[in-house]
């Protein structure tokens, strides 16, 4: 038996050999600071601040790894541009019904693989722990961010964040974007 699909998502992005080590260190630090802010915002429940981490044309996708590996385009969440990012945040804050919960992101050190044309390619692994009232904390998601950042003034913004999750069998639902 062979798996028909090529495991594209599982292939590591090649490290860009030409990247100057000092520059790479600076970029990794900037991405890690960004990810720490991103996690803090979501973990505090401030979902309506989440679109602010993206460019106006920013793309966000949450993709099950088996779909990614099979080349299937369906996302669990997908936002193309600021309008859809804001609509997702509004829906979570004001229209969706769900039990109150804590989420906690644990994000690995970032790995910057490329920097060209003002675009930074980076990856980091993430795990999200979810805690509901009177229930033990459980693993909601583990996966990998595959990111493209741009510098915007003195800060980074996401031009694209693809969250490819290994936890294919979702426990109940994913409310807040990973």
């Amino acid at each position: 038996m062979t798996n028909a699909a090529q495991p594209a998502a599982a292939q590591p992005a090649p490290a860009h050999a030409a990247l100057d080590p000092a520059l790479r260190r600076d970029l990794c630090f900037a991405v890690q600071e960004f990810n720490a802010d991103y996690a803090d915002t979501l973990d505090r429940g401030d979902i309506e601040a989440w679109p602010g981490f993206f460019t106006e044309d920013g793309v966000y996708r949450l993709i099950a790894r088996d779909n990614a590996d099979a080349g299937l385009p369906l996302s669990l969440m997908s936002c193309e541009g600021m309008g859809m990012l804001k609509d997702r945040a509004y829906a979570i804050a004001h229209t969706e019904m769900f039990a109150p919960r804590y989420v906690l992101h644990v994000i690995s050190p970032a790995r910057v693989s490329d920097y060209r044309g003002g675009l930074i390619s980076a990856q980091a692994n993430y795990a999200i722990l979810e805690t509901l009232v009177d229930e033990p904390t459980r693993l909601l998601q583990c996966g990998r961010y595959r990111d493209t950042f741009v510098m915007h003034g003195d800060r980074l913004l996401l031009k694209e964040r693809n969250c490819v999750y290994d936890t294919v069998l979702v426990p109940t639902c994913v409310v807040y974007p990973p």
Partner: peptide
């Protein structure tokens, strides 16, 4: 169709409501 599928699934605008309920 892919864009519209934000409505359903276990991360969907109304998929979440039903699973939680």
């Amino acid at each position: 169709r892919l864009r519209q599928n934000n409505i359903f699934g276990p991360g969907g605008f109304i998929g979440i409501d039903d699973n939680e309920a």
